[in-house]
Amino acid sequence: MKVAIPVSSKIDNPTMFNRFGRAKYFCIIETEDETAVFLDNPAVDARGGAGLRAVEFLVENGVQSVIVPQLGPNADRALRAANVSIFQGEQLPVKDLISKLKNEDLRKI
């Protein structure tokens, strides 16, 4: 399963960024083998509707789950309509968040 987490830098094991639609990058982690890639968020400078643009982009890239700090109502509706699972994250390194996800320690929202 492909999981997206918003981050602000492309370093190894970055910490989750505190915003979703305006994050600079998304760290996309394949839970099978824990490989990670970074995608530039095309919505980072969107005039409006950044959350929606970001969701559309993630869906196009085959993301099935997101771990997020908080979500606006538009991004929330968009993720649900696209059948993307939403998990409540906290500001931890992405590897910690993935282990929490695997241990079913993250709340599905």
Partner: peptide, 13 residues
């Protein structure tokens, strides 16, 4: 960004 495509529909915000 008022329209968004999801697999089975176009959402209008």
């Amino acid at each position: 960004n008022a329209l968004m495509r999801v697999p089975d529909q176009i959402l209008l915000f």
